[in-house]
């Protein structure tokens, strides 16, 4: 593959679309090219190899190790598709094992070069962050669709969500408390404050449906105190796909891609929430300043945690088959 061909390939990757040619040429220079044979592993689940892979040609299969030493095939990826972004972004082990199913060529972008693309407040960095968030949202939807299919039936239609206007207003939390949350303690204090004052605060009792599965969400919610369950409900069967405790968010998927919410969100404990109505969400999502960066990073972190959670019930279901 010549340098020219590599640049052309990268230009067609959705994540990098719109980058100028000089940037792509620089990227092509730092990326490693690898060819693996059919049956060869690119990495194992739990492994700590930090790189973003783009499949140039060939095909790979992804699999999940489940309790009892069994392996469940999860999916496949082919030319133009991306692998490894979850472990690269959150620094934990790979969520799935990946092996080539035929002779496969990949381009690999290392951790530090990837971090350089996201650094600073350049428009290209914001565009990349937004695309990553959209990509992770699509992956989460895909995973949740598999889980919902395993339950069968249709989403519950009762428990209409409470509008944010109907919830009890509250004063903001102590900023020292918020800064002690792992989600926020390495953020710039002024930018964090800007984000935390962008919306309004409400209190909710336990058992309150705030987002209904299959309906659009009216707002982005961030849990300050308490806990909110993200659940798939089919009759008396349910799968909890996440628990939004302090510093975790919910209700944002449909604001990102304009589609209905893939899960319901119901308070498990009484809760104090930051609520950003959809118009405020839109502004923060598309702005390119320090506050917007905090916002995008917070969503990204939340998506990564939720994706990892969503894979856990999948393992449990697989092991009971």
């Amino acid at each position: 593959m010549s340098d020219r061909e590599t640049v052309d390939f990268l230009a067609a990757v959705p994540l990098l679309e719109g980058r100028d040619e000089a940037e792509l040429a620089e990227l092509a220079r730092v990326m490693g090219r690898r060819t693996v044979q059919a049956g060869e592993a690119l990495w194992r689940q739990g492994g700590d190899r930090r790189e973003l892979l783009f499949v140039v040609d060939g095909a790979v299969a992804t699999s999940l190790q489940v309790s009892g030493g069994r392996t469940v095939e999860i999916g496949s990826a082919g030319p133009g598709q991306m692998l490894g972004e979850i472990a690269l972004l959150d620094g934990q082990g790979h969520t799935l094992s990946v092996r080539a199913t035929e002779t496969t060529t990949v381009l690999a972008l290392g951790h530090s070069d990837f971090a350089a693309l996201l650094a600073g407040q350049r428009p290209a960095a914001f565009t990349l962050r937004r695309r990553l968030v959209a990509h992770l949202t699509a992956r989460l939807r895909d995973q949740l669709r598999h889980l919902a299919a395993s339950l069968g039936g249709e989403p519950a239609t009762d428990g209409a969500p409470a509008g944010a206007d109907l919830l009890e207003p509250s004063s903001p939390p102590d900023s020292k408390y918020v800064r002690r949350m792992a989600t926020f303690h390495d953020f710039d204090p002024l930018a964090l404050w800007g984000f935390l004052t962008s919306g309004k605060y409400v209190r909710c009792p336990p058992g309150q449906t705030l987002v209904a599965e299959g309906a659009p969400s009216a707002a982005y919610y961030l849990t300050i105190n308490g806990a909110v369950e993200k659940v798939l409900v089919r009759g008396d069967r349910r799968i909890r796909v996440g628990l939004a405790g302090p510093g975790m968010a919910f209700g944002y998927e449909s604001l990102i891609d304009g589609r209905p919410s893939p899960v319901a969100a119901i308070t498990r404990e009484r809760a104090l929430l930051l609520v950003l109505p959809s118009d405020v969400f839109e502004q923060l999502f598309h702005r390119e300043d320090a506050i917007s960066r905090v916002f995008l990073e917070a969503i990204q972190r939340d998506l990564l945690v939720t994706l990892r959670h969503a894979l856990r019930p999948s393992a449990r279901l697989a092991s009971s088959v």
Binding site: Y177, N225, L243, G245, E269, A271
Partner: peptide, 25 residues
């Protein structure tokens, strides 16, 4: 879960739900 006294020394420990895992086979 998720509610803490001000200036609590255990806050960072308890912010995540206390973990528990299992392996079966």
């Amino acid at each position: 879960y998720g509610w803490y006294p001000p200036a609590d020394e255990m806050l960072e420990t308890d912010l995540p739900f206390v973990s528990l895992w299992y392996a079966i086979g």
